[in-house]
Design a protein around this nucleic acid. Structure first.
Lengths: 203, 203
DNA sequence: GCCGGGAGTGAACGTCGGTTAACCTCACGC
DNA sequence: GCGTGAGGTTAACCGACGTTCACTCCCGGC
């Protein structure tokens, strides 16, 4: 009983290997969804288990603790952003305008594909242990630096502190997707966000 | 002992009557600060009490419950935004460009003055009871509508759904202040955010 | 000078949730 | 066939935290 075989699937595809996800990945995705909806502190281990069709303690076969689960999730997000950002910049050639457009397109796609991850990313960082949080923040900082370098080359007279603030503002703009969910078609939303982000970044 | 008289004061002035705040207001401000730093679920009643120099249960002389405290905080934020937004639009005259600039200036000031409130506002809404959350969301929606009306008048060919998404994106941009704290002077930050917001809103 | 109530304290209670322990059961490799 | 280990289950433990309670202290009005 408690039909473990036909677990309720999570609708939003998170990212990488979407085919035949391991239990670990199933749990991470379900947890991300729940954490985004209610906050990690308000989601019990039993809730996460139930979302993948097992009981709460079964989680501990796959993760050392609930915090370790959250840590792995946040570190994964940050790493994907950092790697993806670097990759897109490298592929865009030397023109900083092209690089900016590539970064914006990347961030917009990520935000539209993974609203749950976006939400968890900046809401639950504070629930991590000090060194887990430090590790995640280090990755985030490096991703921001990718943006800052491009932005600084685009407006050389502006200080890097201002460029950093500019980068954060663009993130805030693009990452607003969880707040305005649904009402606009995905391609239209992508276009709108990209247009606004580029205007803001170069204003 | 436990010198209750010389309580540690909260540095960030929140808003209204800043002179001789009542215990209630002291508690609300300290709680906002703590909630912003660690999330309302991770902050104990004892923490809030300690921040104003009393023990945990003393809170219940001023609030019915921890949830009631959070509800009053969030409702206050939403109301201040709604009232302030309407006021600024009315004072700006009939020109939609002037109205937009007034709204942006208002939101930028609020965000720079109250980063803690900005953070709590969208992180801890989910911790409210269903009808408290509904009440807050109703106020938020009305504030968004103020923006949507101005934006829609500015770009009549765009649908209201897109204008709503645009408004949320501008909020995200301006409300990024908690993430890029400090490194830039307040006036420079205000100018930067206003410029970016206007560019994004009219792009 | 009393006294009533607002404000605070420390102790106690109950619940909730993360974690652990003990036990079960298949699917295999030998 | 049989041990073994991965992956589950249920029950129990335990600490944290919101809330209540009985009591104290102090201050303003009569």
């Amino acid at each position: 009983m408690t039909g473990a075989a036909t677990g309720g699937e999570v609708d939003t595809a998170l990212s990488a290997d979407a085919a035949r996800p391991s239990r670990r990945e199933q749990i991470l995705r379900a947890a991300a969804q729940l954490f985004a909806e209610r906050g990690s502190r308000s989601v019990g281990v039993d809730d996460v288990g139930a979302a993948v069709g097992v009981t709460g303690p079964a989680i501990y076969r796959h993760f050392a603790s609930k915090d370790a689960m959250l840590a792995e999730m946040l570190e994964g997000i940050s790493r994907r952003l950092l790697d993806g950002g670097r990759e897109r910049v490298a592929a865009a050639g030397p023109d900083p305008v092209a690089q900016l457009r590539a970064l914006i397109a990347f961030q917009v796609d990520f935000a539209l594909d993974n609203p749950a991850l976006i939400t968890v990313q900046d809401r639950d960082l504070g629930s991590l242990s000090d060194d887990d949080a430090a590790r995640v923040r280090r990755l985030q900082r490096r991703y921001v630096e990718v943006w800052v370098e491009v932005l600084a080359r685009l407006r050389p007279q502006e200080g890097t502190a201002a460029s950093r603030a500019r980068a954060h503002a663009v993130f805030g703009l693009v990452n607003s997707t969880p707040h305005s969910a649904g009402r606009v078609s995905r391609p239209q939303m992508a276009g709108l966000l990209a247009t606004m982000a580029e205007a803001a970044a170069t204003a």
